[in-house]
Simulated scan of single mutants.
Amino acid sequence: MPLIIRAANATDEAALGRMGAALARKHHEFDAQRFMLPDDVESGYRAWLGREARRKDAVVIVAELDGQVVGYAYGRVEPVDWNALLDRAGAFHDLWVEEKARRGGVGALLAEEMMRRLTSLGVPRVVLHTAARNEPAQRMFARLGWRPTMVEMTREAPAHTEPISER
């Protein structure tokens, strides 16, 4: 059977929860202080992506191979953000492909379909973030035309801080 990229539906929610949890675990492995890993992350992702799939300004798509969901992507339209100096844009939040389906172009197909669907919602650009240590994803996105624009930096708060008094 050929690979099919399609909108996620309610029957995909268990797979979305499993794959979303795998994505969360991978990020947590990259930097456990930066990326949260809530208890029962599968249920959380299943519920979150199920709700998002029903929003008119969100896109949740899956890659299906031989009748089995092997990847997903999630993004949505975001309004003007003065803090980020970002005009209305598509925000490409998640991309996951199961190990058995990697290196065959599934991720690129999901990314291109996400771009197509978000721009069809009227956004002038799509912005995404990748974990600093996720170099394979960065290379793929660069091949597809994304360019680096920001670098996120994180610093943990000291164990105990005194408030800075104003003078």
Score class of each variant (00 low, 15 high):
Val80Arg: 14
Asp81Tyr: 10
Asp81Arg: 06
Asp81Val: 07
Trp82Met: 04
Trp82Pro: 09
Trp82Cys: 06
Asn83Arg: 01
Ala84Ser: 11
Leu85Glu: 07
Asp87Arg: 15
Ala89Phe: 13
Ala89Met: 12
Ala89Ser: 14
Gly90Leu: 01
Ala91Asn: 05
Phe92His: 02
Phe92Leu: 09
His93Trp: 06
His93Gly: 09
His93Phe: 15
His93Met: 14
His93Pro: 14
Asp94Tyr: 09
Asp94Met: 10
Asp94Cys: 03
Leu95Lys: 11
Leu95Phe: 04
Trp96Gly: 03
Val97Phe: 04
Val97Gln: 04
Val97Cys: 04
Val97Ala: 05
Glu98Phe: 04
Glu99Val: 13
Glu99Thr: 03
Lys100Trp: 05
Lys100Gly: 00
Arg102Ser: 10
Arg102Thr: 12
Arg102Leu: 15
Arg103Ala: 03
Arg103Glu: 11
Gly104Asp: 11
Val106Ser: 00
Val106Glu: 00
Ala108Pro: 07
Ala108His: 06
Leu109Trp: 11
Leu110Val: 08
Glu112Trp: 02
Glu113Pro: 04
Glu113Asn: 14
Met114Asn: 02
Met114Gln: 14
Met114Ser: 14
Met114Tyr: 09
Met115His: 05
Met115Asp: 11
Arg116Gly: 12
Arg116Thr: 14
Arg116Asp: 09
Arg116Ser: 13
Leu118Asn: 10
Leu118Met: 02
Ser120Cys: 04
Ser120Gln: 04
Leu121Ala: 10
Leu121His: 07
Gly122Gln: 15
Gly122Asn: 15
Val123Ala: 00
Val123Asn: 01
Pro124Val: 13
Pro124His: 03
Arg125Phe: 06
Arg125Glu: 12
Arg125Ser: 13
Val126Asp: 03
Val127Lys: 05
Val127Ser: 01
Val127Arg: 07
Val127Met: 03
Val127Gly: 05
Leu128Phe: 01
Leu128Thr: 06
His129Glu: 13
His129Phe: 02
Thr130Cys: 15
Ala131Asn: 04
Ala131Ser: 11
Ala131Phe: 10
Ala132Glu: 14
Arg133Trp: 06
Arg133Met: 08
Glu135Gly: 01
Glu135Ala: 15
Met140Arg: 13
Phe141Pro: 01
Arg143Cys: 05
Arg143Ala: 09
Gly145Arg: 02
Gly145Thr: 10
Trp146Lys: 09
Trp146Asn: 03
Arg147Val: 13
Thr149Tyr: 14
Thr149Phe: 13
Met150His: 11
Val151Glu: 11
Val151Pro: 02
Glu152His: 10
Glu152Arg: 02
Glu152Gly: 12
Met153Ala: 04
Met153Gly: 01
Arg155Leu: 09
Arg155Glu: 08
Glu156Gly: 08
Glu156Cys: 07
Ala157His: 02
Ala157Ile: 09
Ala157Cys: 10
Ala157Gly: 05
Ala157Glu: 06
Pro158Ala: 06
Pro158Phe: 13
Pro158Trp: 10
